[in-house]
């Protein structure tokens, strides 16, 4: 038994170290000028471009736009997906399989294909190059993840709890806020996290629908990766990672604050 626990700890922490160690790579690359084989550390460090990159007004614009897009996408995705996932998770009805497949479709079709077609219609209705247009296309690609996560949460939760509360005389609003929401909250957080992450890392869709009017962090970052400018690419990557992490930590903290009791006492 003791031995088993050690293996568990070993597996888990090996994985954790493997997850984090690439960050060290990025930090080193961000500061290295020359790093010839076989040196384990860069033979020449530099911080030349660092200040210029970090202080540029474009970066501030990009971070703000990225965060705004990701937040709006998260809200839009949850609003759309919550009822549908509840339907698919709790009820058996004709078309349930079709719904599940439809919600999974955006993951299966290469993003550029759909976005190019969508761009045509967005131009026609005047949504191309607008924040709303970009949020819509980000939401399309966040739906599959959020839908699956929430659907399983509802499946596991089952219908009984809501029904019991209703039988005890709770109104629909009361049932929702006192029973449903606390029960699905961990799932909601996971779904929100995925939606946020999907939106935050979108490149090609922001590109096509935003048409360059909306500047996001990936739009700054990707050209440097493609151009082999590891310096700038690493700096922007670090900005990207830490902004996203900070936003997610904040999100979880807010949720915990509001649902402290139910979330921890009734896991």
């Amino acid at each position: 038994m003791k031995w088993g626990r050690d293996v568990v700890q070993l597996v888990m922490w090996t994985a954790a170290v493997a997850c984090v160690s690439p960050l060290l790579s990025l930090i080193m690359l961000a500061f290295s000028a020359q790093w010839p084989f076989p040196h384990l550390l860069p033979s020449l460090f530099t911080a030349d471009h660092l200040a210029k990159l970090l202080l540029s007004p474009r970066l501030v614009e990009a971070v703000t736009t990225s965060l705004a897009l990701a937040l709006l996408t998260t809200v839009a995705t949850l609003l759309l997906v919550f009822p549908a996932a509840k339907a698919a998770g709790l009820y058996r009805f004709r078309g349930r399989e079709a719904l599940k497949l439809l919600a999974l479709m955006p993951v299966m079709v290469p993003a550029a294909t759909v976005t190019m077609g969508l761009h045509y219609f967005m131009i026609r209705v005047g949504l191309a190059g607008t924040m709303l247009g970009v949020v819509i296309v980000h939401t399309v690609f966040a739906v599959p993840y959020a839908f699956r996560i929430l659907m399983y949460v509802f499946e596991i939760m089952g219908e009984q709890q809501e029904e019991q509360a209703a039988m005890l005389g709770a109104g629909p609003l009361m049932v929702f806020s006192a029973v449903t929401l606390p029960l699905v909250m961990p799932g909601m957080v996971a779904a929100a996290t995925m939606s946020f992450v999907i939106s935050f890392s979108q490149y090609i869709t922001t590109f096509i629908i935003g048409g360059g009017r909306l500047l996001t962090v990936p739009l700054l970052l990707v050209p440097h990766v493609q151009g082999g400018e590891l310096h700038a690419a690493s700096v922007y990557s670090l900005v990207f990672i830490f902004t996203a992490l900070a936003a997610l930590v904040l999100l979880r903290a807010v949720v915990r604050h509001y649902y402290r009791e139910t979330y921890f006492l009734n896991p």
């Binding site: 045509y120 131009i123 026609r124 090609i204 590109f207 360059g212 009017r213 050209p223």
Partner: peptide, 23 residues
């Protein structure tokens, strides 16, 4: 910053959609 392939893809869609004021 935008790759020329994407610029042309964008322009060609805008041509098809008759967008006369582009970006």
């Amino acid at each position: 910053p935008m790759n020329i392939d994407e610029i042309l893809r964008k322009l060609s869609t805008e041509r098809q959609a008759n967008q006369t004021r582009g970006d």
